[in-house]
Structure formats: structure tokens, C-alpha cells
Simulated scan of single mutants.
Amino acid sequence: MASGFSVEPNVALRRLGSLVLVFALIGGLPIFARIIGAQFLPSTAWVSHSVWLAWGSGIFCAVFFTVMFMRNKPLVEPDMRPFMYILLIIFSPIFFGSLGKDAIVAGAPMLYTMVAGKPTELQYVVERATGFSDRKCRNDIELMDMPSMYDRLCGFPKDFRDSLRPGQTLIVSGHGSSLGTFVTSAHVAGQ
């Protein structure tokens, strides 16, 4: 006896899932670049113009992956403890939301810069140039009006960092575009 429900997989949902997965992969590119030692900064103009698109992408990815996870998993599985299930439900929106947001803020500009980039200079304003150095970011220089993960310059000499003051404008050079740059050097504007 035939039922009124389709047994075929939902093609539109699968295509939407593939699109969201592409967004998550693009959002992971800046993280991968940082792991291999490349430092990419999106431009301040791109960050300010794309803020709502980035938040929308982040929220969409967070909701989509969480709903798909909950839809495909029974509430209690023999091999999954309830505590782990609750942790996955709590942290999957945070994880996939940040990947979706990063896809717009830095991933797409990074891809564009890799393909169409040329030697370029972008301006950033110093927020703070003091603090502790760590393994992840040696002699960090914090930048104003930039999203977290993309608000620091790392690896510059301590003398250079110590000479900077809040509010100074830095000219950051590297392989880039109007959307961002792979940082190779920096100097204070007007010097």
C-alpha cells in the first residue's frame, strides 16, 4: 500500500546542505592559513560593509547544521551518552555559526585575494601595542574595528611594536586586494 510520503531523499535539502558545507569550508580557510603560518587580514572597508551578510551567514549555518544534526539523530543512541549529545547541541551552533561568519568576513576575501591579488597596501588603526607575547602571536599589535581572530598583527619585532601608540595608522603591505591582504610588512603612516 502506497503512503503519501516520498521515500526519495530531499534533493533541495541536500543541495542546500552542500551549499552550507561549502560556506563552512570557505570559513575554515583562514584558520588553515593561520596554522601554516600565513597571516591574512580582511580590509576594514570590507569588514564594515559585510557585517550584516556575515552575521546572516553565521546564523544560517548555525541553525542549518544544528537542525540537520538533530533531525538525523535519535534523542538517545546506545553509543552516545546524553551528556555528549547535549554538548553537541550546545557547541555545534557556535562552531558552525563562526565558520559561516568567517566565510564572509575572511574566507571569501582570502579566496579572491589568492586569485586576483597583487602587491597592495591597506590602512589599519592601532588599538593597543602592549601586552604579553605567546606562541600563537609573537609581539602582537591589536587593530581597531576588526573582528576577533582578525584583529591582531603578529610576528613583528618588539622594537617596532613598542614604538606604536593607540590611534596611529599602520600601512600594512602584502599580496592583497581591496578586500584584504596577506601580511608581509607594516610601517607607520607618514614614515
Results as ranks from 00 to 15, higher is better:
Ala2Tyr: 12
Ser3Gln: 03
Gly4Ser: 09
Val7Tyr: 14
Val7Phe: 15
Glu8Trp: 14
Asn10Glu: 08
Val11Ala: 00
Leu13Pro: 00
Arg15Cys: 03
Val20Gly: 04
Leu21Lys: 02
Leu21Glu: 01
Val22Asn: 00
Phe23His: 13
Phe23Tyr: 11
Phe23Ala: 14
Leu25Trp: 03
Ile26Gln: 03
Ile26Glu: 02
Gly27Thr: 05
Gly27Lys: 09
Ala33Glu: 05
Arg34Ala: 12
Arg34Tyr: 08
Ile35Thr: 08
Gly37Met: 13
Gly37Ile: 04
Phe40Thr: 02
Phe40Gly: 04
Ser43Gln: 01
Ser43Met: 01
Thr44Ile: 12
Thr44Glu: 15
Val47Gly: 00
Ser50Gln: 08
Val51Cys: 03
Val51Arg: 15
Ala54Arg: 00
Ala54Leu: 07
Gly56Pro: 14
Ser57Cys: 13
Ile59Thr: 12
Ile59Ser: 09
Phe60Cys: 09
Phe60Thr: 10
Phe60Ala: 12
Cys61Ile: 10
Cys61Ser: 15
Ala62Tyr: 13
Val63Asp: 12
Phe64His: 07
Phe64Pro: 03
Val67Tyr: 10
Met68Thr: 02
Met70Asn: 08
Met70Glu: 04
Arg71His: 08
Arg71Ala: 09
Lys73Ser: 08
Lys73Thr: 07
Lys73Val: 02
Lys73Glu: 05
Leu75Pro: 07
Val76Tyr: 14
Glu77Asp: 07
Pro78Trp: 06
Pro78Asn: 05
Pro82Leu: 13
Phe83Asp: 04
Phe83Gly: 04
Leu88Phe: 14
Ile94Arg: 01
Phe95Arg: 05
Phe96Gln: 11
Leu99Ser: 07
Leu99Pro: 10
Gly100Tyr: 06
Gly100Val: 06
Gly100Met: 01
Asp102Met: 09
Ala103Arg: 01
Ile104Val: 15
Gly107Phe: 01
Ala108Ser: 06
Ala108Thr: 07
Leu111Lys: 07
Leu111Glu: 05
Thr113Ile: 10
Met114Tyr: 01
Ala116Trp: 15
Pro119Val: 10
Glu121Leu: 11
Leu122Trp: 12
Tyr124Asp: 01
Val126Thr: 08
Val126Trp: 02
Glu127Ala: 00
Arg128Ile: 05
Ala129Trp: 08
Ser133Cys: 07
Asp134Cys: 12
Lys136Pro: 00
Glu142His: 15
Glu142Asn: 15
Leu143Asp: 00
Asp145Leu: 11
Tyr150Asn: 04
Arg152Pro: 02
Lys158Pro: 02
Leu164Asn: 05
Leu164Ser: 05
Ile171Ser: 09
Val172Trp: 10
Gly174Lys: 14
His175Val: 05
His175Arg: 14
Gly176Cys: 10
Leu179Phe: 15
Leu179Lys: 03
Val183Pro: 07
Ser185Asn: 15
Ala189Asn: 05
